[in-house]
């Protein structure tokens, strides 16, 4: 997003974009939303560390329009071709399933933004047989190619309230992001961020309710199959995060954003930065434990959930203190 905005002359770092989009989050991401929900358990989900509405919050903070270009295959292709001819990548939201062997052995759900560039092999007349690929750039370190035709087919599979890819164009306002203006925007974004997290449920928000529920279920049910499902869910989640964002569930990005905005906010952010740094370390350690150990006991997993729960809880309390001063 930061890179895309720079193409539109809005210069913000990745962490600043993260803060302005009120993006801090822990939620459950459905791995395959097209499958019937009635037959799903925890292993059909992964942890999503990005507010699903962060684009809406970001564009509202920055006062920029989003014009949705997507309607059908022709228009979708038209957007990609136009952007390629302008030597610009298109911004896409990947909110569904990407099956790509370069990143994962199987399908996995992701929720995030990427830049997509159509390669020069694309010819309009033979789209079904086209060997053209889309080059996807997801953050600085994750880049991969997806066959154009499989990408389009996945998009067209979209039904009802689910779709795989959303194409957005941003028309920037010509505002100059002065410190005073940014201060107002950051304040609004942090207030929204806190209240989004504070009213979280067991599926979306701060992760506190979710971690508590996971822990409670594990406590109640002394069943090996349940333990295995938890481990599959966690391995899946941490593997995606390790591949896409790093291990700390974006807590480090939030901390970096707070450090970058510390100067203009005029409130002491040290304690909240410390607490979210601690969350970052706990998530990294949890990821390390889950991905590098084949035999994890029920007690170890319960300890892990409890530690994560406590650190998220303490961090949210500190965020509350800051937001009380801002509001």
């Amino acid at each position: 997003m930061s890179k895309y905005l720079a193409l539109k002359n809005i210069h913000l770092t990745e962490s600043q974009v993260f803060i302005l989009g009120s993006s801090l989050w822990i939620g459950l991401q459905d791995i395959d939303p097209l499958r019937n929900a009635a037959f799903k358990d925890i292993s059909d989900f992964s942890l999503n560390p990005l507010n699903p509405l962060s684009l809406e919050y970001l564009t509202n903070s920055l006062l920029i329009y989003i014009k949705v270009m997507y309607k059908n295959r022709e228009q979708l292709l038209g957007t990609l071709i136009r952007d390629r001819n302008d030597n610009k990548p298109a911004l896409v939201k990947l909110s569904g399933i990407i099956n790509d062997k370069n990143i994962s052995d199987g399908e996995f759900g992701i929720n995030g933004f990427a830049l997509a560039t159509l390669d020069s092999k694309y010819r309009e007349e033979n789209i079904e047989k086209s060997e053209a690929t889309l080059h996807i750039e997801y953050g600085e370190s994750v880049k991969f190619d997806v066959p154009l035709i499989s990408f389009l087919n996945k998009t067209l599979k979209a039904k009802k309230d689910f779709f795989n890819v959303r194409w957005v164009r941003i028309v920037p306002s010509e505002q100059n992001l002065t410190d005073k203006m940014q201060k107002g925007e950051v304040k609004i974004a942090l207030i929204r961020q806190y209240y989004l997290l504070a009213r979280s449920d067991n599926k979306n928000g701060s992760g506190i309710a979710l971690l508590k529920e996971l822990n409670d279920k594990l406590k109640k049910d002394n069943n090996q199959e349940l333990l295995n499902k938890h481990l599959r869910f966690l391995r899946h989640s941490f593997k995606i995060q390790a591949l896409l964002n790093g291990d700390g569930m974006n807590r480090n990005v939030f901390v970096k954003g707070l450090l970058e905005y510390d100067r203009i906010l005029e409130v002491n952010l040290k304690s909240v930065i410390d607490k979210y740094n601690s969350c970052y370390r706990e998530w990294c350690s949890a990821s390390n434990m889950v991905l590098n150990n084949n035999n994890i006991s029920r007690n170890e997993l319960k300890d892990m959930y409890e530690t994560l729960y406590c650190s998220e809880f303490l961090a949210l309390n500190e965020l509350h203190k800051i937001v009380s001063k801002l509001i």
Partner: peptide, 27 residues
Amino acid sequence: ETFPFEVSVKLSLSQVIQMFKQVKKYA
């Protein structure tokens, strides 16, 4: 479930003030 009402009010007032006094050009 919404934000507490006074929070929503404050956010909405901030936005209007910001647009009136800070933003020079919008599209």
